[in-house]
């Protein structure tokens, strides 16, 4: 009798586990909060402020998804993950979506069984050198000492780049970005290499940022994007189209300032109407309210607003849009149509 009850409980637990992975949307709605995996802290992308409120570019994606699903951009439980714990947290169901500047690679998508829903930042590996060095191109770096984080893809990219240009370098292995910053400033290496966004953020923290230059070469592709588990395509669609809504909103000129006005009544632009739910049934197709995209955009603004507020040229990080501009402005951001 006791044994049966035990196995019964096990079966129920197993059932609960399997249903949890099958309908993430229902779980999130029942829970009332979105569990969103973020970094434990990366300048401009995700960090809590002095009052413990999370801010940043990746955090903006979490808040947009929460607003689309639950209508409340604060209904997010931010679960900090390290580079080592992020994938297990997602796979085990501890988080519903991982927005942690994670590079979309073949093996992560296919082998680890995740679904990258899009790209919210096109990054790439770059070089930073002191201005005094007088170097204008990475190809002039023959014989340079390079500070490089060990065990990362940047290490492999660096070796490939120097070999294909048949120039030599001397690596100075370091563990963390903080250590790299100190080593580089102390002159232990001529060059520091990591993702270009990280270089810009690092340079912004220097006492004299103007004394250091970022070289024009970008030697790798690092498309960063939010991801979800395999096996729940409905949930993947929701996160994918929440991100697309932010990108499309910028293209269509919908901002957090005018979204209420545009969403109140049908406008002259049918795509804006479909996006904001005043025309068509797009929200219902996702299993969400009609004003889902309106809420997502109102949460933190469209893609361009999020970019400018967190990592754009008016912030201390000062990243230019570059590849992350809309396709109409020569960038790579290209949302499929809302139709």
């Amino acid at each position: 009798m006791k044994k049966t009850a035990f196995y019964g409980a096990l079966a129920v637990a197993g059932l609960a586990a399997s249903t949890a992975s099958a309908a993430t949307l229902d779980d999130v709605k029942a829970r009332g909060v979105l569990n969103c995996g973020v970094t434990t802290g990366l300048v401009g992308f995700a960090s809590p402020d002095a009052n413990g409120v999370w801010n940043g570019f990746d955090v903006g994606v979490c808040r947009a998804v929460a607003a689309a699903v639950l209508g409340d951009s604060d209904a997010v439980e931010f679960i900090p993950t390290t580079g080592k714990t992020r994938f297990t947290a997602l796979a085990s169901g501890e988080i519903d979506v991982l927005a942690r500047n994670t590079t979309w690679t073949f093996s992560r998508d296919v082998d680890l069984k995740f679904e990258f829903v899009g790209i919210n930042y096109y990054d790439g590996q770059g070089f930073m050198v002191p201005r005094d060095l007088g170097v204008a191109s990475a190809k002039d770096l023959d014989g340079a000492t390079v500070c490089i984080q060990t065990g990362t893809t940047t290490e492999l990219n660096l070796a490939d780049f120097f070999r294909s240009n048949s120039i030599s370098y001397e690596p100075v292995p370091i563990e963390t970005n903080a250590e790299a910053q100190q080593q580089y400033l102390a002159g232990a290496c001529d060059v520091y290499t990591t993702d270009a966004s990280g270089l810009a953020a690092t340079r912004a923290s220097f006492e004299n940022p103007g004394d250091h230059v970022l070289l024009p070469e970008i030697i790798s592709k690092e498309p960063l994007g939010p991801l979800v588990r395999h096996g729940d395509n409905d949930w993947g669609d929701i996160v994918r189209w929440s991100l697309n809504a932010l990108i499309a909103a910028e293209e269509l000129g919908v901002t957090s300032a005018n979204v209420e006005e545009l969403g109140a009544a049908p406008t002259g632009n049918p795509e804006v109407n479909r996006l904001l739910g005043t025309e068509g049934e797009l929200g219902a197709m996702l299993g969400l309210e009609a004003d889902w995209a309106k809420n997502a955009i109102a949460a933190g603004g469209n893609y361009g607003e999020l970019f400018e507020k967190n990592i754009g040229e008016n912030t201390p990080i000062g990243l230019a849009r570059g590849l992350n501009a809309q396709w109409t402005d020569g960038g790579l951001l290209y949302s499929p149509p809302f139709r």
Binding site: G41, V43, G44, S47, P48, P80, T85, T315, I317
Partner: peptide, 19 residues
């Protein structure tokens, strides 16, 4: 390292990652 914010975790994570 398992994303609990003890004293060192606070320093390395949120504080050093703030603008």
């Amino acid at each position: 390292v398992i994303s609990m914010f003890d004293l060192v975790g606070m320093i390395r994570g949120p504080i050093l990652a703030s603008v």
